[in-house]
């Protein structure tokens, strides 16, 4: 298939369609409304289901009901909307259902602003909703990568019967880039024996997150964490860029921020200074071992984020004292410039 110039938000919607997904629930919110607008036209063309719910609260719970039947389903939203979906995400994780959420992150807290941010790292990686659970969180840094991750997200959700979140900052949603839709190799997935789709020829199933017996609830929590350990073993994704022996500084950055850091690294290279970049693609599971390995022998590590310092906590617990860990961030929709990142790195040399 030839490459096509597409806006990130539209490409995310098309990727789900190309992945064979036909069920989408949504609620409009800037800067991701183009996904809903695109799919409002596109879903009927492919015989799919499009529904605009009355709120993100309702949409999250529609996702639960739809996913419980065993059908593949997704939604897209942005930070304040994702906050409203946290109730459903906690229930979906507790009931062990597969579903895909894309968050085109904008600045917060509160209504915040509508420009790009990475300040929902804690919300998506550390919990967000109540209870002990994790989502598999994937962060693209290009529109092409957003497409590629979207196309495997549904398989991953099914593999772990767990919510998967694609987290892109507003830049990923709003910019246009050439993309190609390449079908990933099919994953071997177990049959959905748990699905509530009518008890013909079998005993009824119950899909719930309620376990009043404390030992049974503890068992459910332990089952979840068996899955999360499996994610840690099998789903860690990252990119090493210019990571080599002789790196003076190691940058850890994801999404749009990582792309800016690549420009900075090229400038330093021209000056004969070797700076490496470890770009986490899976934010959960976090590439702890890869960060630790890349931090070996560097003078300092710098976490660059569009937040007040969130991922840096995971960087610190990965580096574990191998090198001092610094942080640089811009927030509120301000995207850090190569120049200001350069200044931060020079301070560490």
């Amino acid at each position: 298939m030839a490459k096509k110039l597409m806006k990130g938000n539209e490409a995310i919607g098309e990727a789900a369609i190309q992945a064979g997904v036909r069920n989408y629930f949504c609620y409009p919110i800037t800067p991701q409304s183009e996904v809903a607008e695109y799919l409002a036209k596109r879903m009927p063309e492919v015989g799919g289901m499009f529904l605009q719910g009355e709120s993100e609260l309702a949409v999250g719970n529609m996702i639960f009901g739809a996913a419980a039947t065993g059908e593949r389903v997704f939604t897209t939203s942005s930070s304040p909307g994702i906050s409203l979906m946290q109730e459903a995400i906690s229930y979906i994780a507790g009931a062990q259902l597969p579903a895909v959420f894309a968050n085109i992150v904008r600045g917060g807290p509160g209504l915040g602003g509508i420009l790009p941010a990475q300040s929902d790292y804690f919300q998506s990686v550390k919990g967000g909703g109540h209870g002990d659970y994790k989502m598999l969180v994937l962060a693209p840094s290009t529109v092409q990568e957003a497409v590629d991750l979207m196309m495997i997200a549904f398989d991953l959700a099914d593999k772990y019967t767990n919510p998967v979140m694609i987290i892109g900052d507003g830049m990923i949603g709003q910019m246009m880039e050439p993309v190609e839709f390449k079908k990933p190799p099919p994953m071997a997935l177990p049959p959905k024996k748990w699905a509530a789709n009518g008890c013909k020829g079998r005993d009824p199933v119950i899909i719930r997150s309620l376990f009043l017996d404390p030992l049974r609830l503890e068992q459910n929590n332990r089952e979840l964490f068996v899955k999360y350990r499996r994610m840690q073993a099998e789903e860690v994704r990252f990119e090493r860029y210019n990571v080599e022996k002789g790196n003076k500084v190691l940058i850890v950055a994801y999404g749009t921020t990582a792309r800016i850091c690549k420009t900075v690294i090229a400038d330093f290279k021209a000056r004969g200074i070797n700076v490496g970049l470890l770009r986490p693609i899976s934010l959960y599971p976090f590439p702890m071992a890869a960060v630790a390995e890349a931090a070996e022998g560097v003078k300092a590590v710098l976490s660059v984020e569009m937040s007040m310092g969130q991922m840096v906590e995971d960087v610190e617990r990965s580096v574990l004292g191998r090198a001092p860990v610094g942080f640089f961030g811009r927030v509120g929709g301000v995207v850090p410039t190569p120049e200001e990142i350069t200044v931060e790195i020079e301070k560490l040399l």
Partner: peptide, 20 residues
Amino acid sequence: DFLEAAHGRAPAFATGIKRV
């Protein structure tokens, strides 16, 4: 077959079921 909903959200759950 049964789903256990969050408080008040059963109509959203049922909407999800019937739409897909």
